[in-house]
Simulated scan of single mutants.
Amino acid sequence: MSIMNNPYVQIRRELHQIPERGFDETKTQGYLLQYIQNLPKEHIELKTWKTGIFLRVQGTAPRKTIGYRADIDGLPITEETGLSFKSLHEGMMHACGHDLHMSIALGILTHFATHPPKDNLLFMFQPAEEGPGGALPMIQTDFFTQWKPDMIIALHIAPEYPVGTIATKPGLLFANTSELFIDLTGLGGHAAYPHQTNDMVVAACSLVTQLQSVVARNVDPLDSAVITIGKITGGTVQNIIAERARLEGTIRTLSVESMKKVKERIEALVQGVEIGYNCKTSIDYGSMYHQVDNDVKLTEEFMRFVTNETNVNLIESKEAMTGEDYGYMIANTPGFMFWLGAESPFGLHHSKLNPNEDAIGVAINTIISYLNFKAN
């Protein structure tokens, strides 16, 4: 299915123009609902949840229900692609490929709405993957319980792989992630009288330096973890000693145990800064995402299918420090996620990300074939 005859490329471009923040995806939900409204309704049932959508396709002789997840939110990034169909929402962009994810899901859905599957299918258009996290509350709904799938699959575009490539692995694929916000409050004052103040810029700088020792001296060298402080704010003008400072960052670990150890050490260091700099502190971990741990049996089966039954090139990938709240969906339900090659010179979350749209057809055809294979 090439770009020239693939209607889902145009759908992707229209969705690309309306990126929205998590749980504010009203235009996106409306677009999806309008498209679904035009599908044959004999075998489908739909329920909305917040700005997300559950859609069940009734199988002809169901033995199980297979779930398919597509995330729908955008990112607060100003687009710099120069595309004719660039974002119409100022300061927002589909910079993580969710526009492709949705168009792929609609392509798969359309096929099975017009060619009823043997098994039941549950499509989940999930809001807020980029934050604050929509997967966990979505699977806690009565809708999910009522239509609970026996397995779930999902994909994510990968700009670093060429079109026609799928990459995945059994077991751990994506890391545990947690946001990190640390607020420091001291006593500000005139720059000429530092002895009468408690300078939070100095305290913040000291804390950033100390945080770099957490991974090096508290995590097993054979394990992996990352602490990144991506933003520091503090003070008002050049001649006033800062009363407040704030650190914003992220924590990534390849095990739940390491996440616990890292947080314990961060909390100990923050307590030390509180004492050493005579200030008040607070920590907020914001959104926390569970690791994406692919079911070994299902993933190996999928990898064999791709190798033996398709023209797609399969790569066994390594685990990555990226985060995905899809991990919550397969924490208690067997499932897997895979990378879809979308070759772009710019990576995920970049203002110039421009995936190769031929990836859309590759994904639609592969997933349709795989779901038919699972029904046999």
Rank of each mutant, 00 (worst) to 15 (best):
Y8L: 07
P19G: 11
R21A: 15
Y31Q: 06
I36E: 07
I53M: 10
I53G: 12
Y68V: 13
R69I: 04
G74Y: 03
G74I: 06
P76Q: 13
L83V: 00
F85M: 04
K86C: 07
H89N: 14
L100E: 09
M102G: 11
I108A: 06
T110V: 01
H111L: 02
H115T: 15
P117G: 12
K118S: 12
D119H: 15
D119S: 12
A128E: 08
A128P: 11
G131I: 09
P132N: 13
G133W: 05
G134S: 11
T141Q: 12
D142Q: 14
H156A: 07
E160R: 14
T165F: 09
F174D: 01
E179D: 15
G186M: 05
G186L: 03
Y193R: 15
T197Y: 01
T197V: 04
S224H: 09
A225L: 02
V226W: 00
V226H: 00
T236A: 09
L247A: 08
E248G: 07
E248L: 02
G249F: 02
V256Q: 10
K260Y: 00
K260D: 06
K263D: 00
L269N: 01
G272A: 13
N278A: 10
Y285K: 09
Y289T: 08
V296D: 05
T299Y: 01
E300P: 01
N313T: 15
E319H: 09
G323W: 01
G323N: 07
M329T: 10
T333V: 14
G341I: 07
G347P: 14
L348Q: 10
H349L: 04
I360S: 13
I367N: 03
Y370V: 09
